[in-house]
């Protein structure tokens, strides 16, 4: 078995874990992550914290403005600001 096959670095594992939070990790990447997860405590700690963050953000139902909406708001406000100053 060649080196690197199935075995990934801690940094790669974190990268896959990040992608997995957005459902962008492939099945193969998930398998690689799971193998590292079984023996690397740093990977386990990172996965735990990362999942916790995803859960808490989903639970909060937090929202924000889209970039174009913010631009509209900014333009309107700048007009008012110019009038005021």
């Amino acid at each position: 078995m060649k080196k690197g096959f199935l075995f990934i670095s801690c940094e790669q594992a974190k990268h896959i874990c990040d992608k997995a939070q957005y459902h962008e990790a492939s099945l193969w990447e998930k398998i690689e992550l799971n193998i590292r997860y079984t023996w690397c405590r740093f990977t386990r700690a990172y996965v735990k914290k990362n999942k916790q963050l995803t859960t808490v953000i989903q639970k909060s139902r937090i929202d924000c403005l889209q970039n174009n909406e913010r631009e509209v708001l900014k333009n309107e406000f700048e007009k008012e600001l110019t009038k005021q100053l």
Binding site: C64, E69, F77
Partner: peptide, 24 residues
């Protein structure tokens, strides 16, 4: 103000009025 607080204020508002246009 817009860069610093617009998202925070928007989130605060939409959780109370539940209407995106009105919140904006």
């Amino acid at each position: 103000w817009i860069d610093r607080y617009s998202d925070y204020l928007f989130n605060y508002t939409i959780s109370r009025v539940n209407d995106r246009e009105m919140a904006k």
